[in-house]
């Protein structure tokens, strides 16, 4: 048990979403849903975060921003695409400036559907991401062990 399950810190970035999902992400922090019960904190700082919530599709200007935030996050990390726009582009898929979901720029682990995604769905997405974090952590540990073994020989 590495306690990733107990303390997932999130960072949220609004790619090109219509605010609907963003507001729901924020609503999940507030008294009715109160995700801090599960130790979830919205850090706002990529270097502190474990889980990256992207809402909305990616466009020409923000694809670098999304990638930068992802790169700044320390391992292990997970990405959740929140809302239908972040899954596939949604209603804006045909717009000239929409490149598609964030998975066209960074690897996405969990897709949360909905327009707008309900806070319950977002919380569920985060909870599912926890398992992935734990797995990634173990894989990292294993890789390091193997690396050490090779180095020792």
């Amino acid at each position: 048990m590495a306690y990733f399950k107990k303390s997932p810190w999130i960072i949220h970035y609004d790619a090109t979403s219509c605010n609907g999902c963003d507001i729901e992400v924020l609503a999940a922090l507030t008294p009715l849903y109160d995700v801090e019960r599960f130790g979830i904190i919205n850090t706002g700082n990529p270097k502190h975060a474990d889980i990256f919530l992207v809402t909305g599709a990616v466009n020409e200007q923000n694809k670098m921003v999304v990638k930068n935030i992802y790169d700044q996050m320390p391992e292990p990390k997970a990405v959740i695409a929140v809302g239908i726009c972040a899954c596939s582009g949604g209603i804006f898929r045909e717009c000239y400036n929409v490149l598609g979901g964030p998975d066209s720029v960074i690897p996405v682990d969990i897709y949360v559907p909905g327009c707008a995604a309900r806070p319950e769905a977002i919380i569920d997405g985060v909870v599912q991401a926890l398992g992935i974090l734990e797995k990634k952590h173990l894989a990292r540990k294993e890789a390091r062990k193997q690396h050490d073994r090779i180095a020792a020989n």
Binding site: N59, E60, Q61, E94, C95, Y96, N97, L99
Partner: peptide, 18 residues
């Protein structure tokens, strides 16, 4: 002002797809 995948999108002939 906007950095876009297409330059001057609204100047393109109507009906042209992305």
């Amino acid at each position: 002002f906007y950095r876009m995948a297409v330059k001057h999108p609204f100047a393109a002939p109507a009906g042209q797809k992305k």
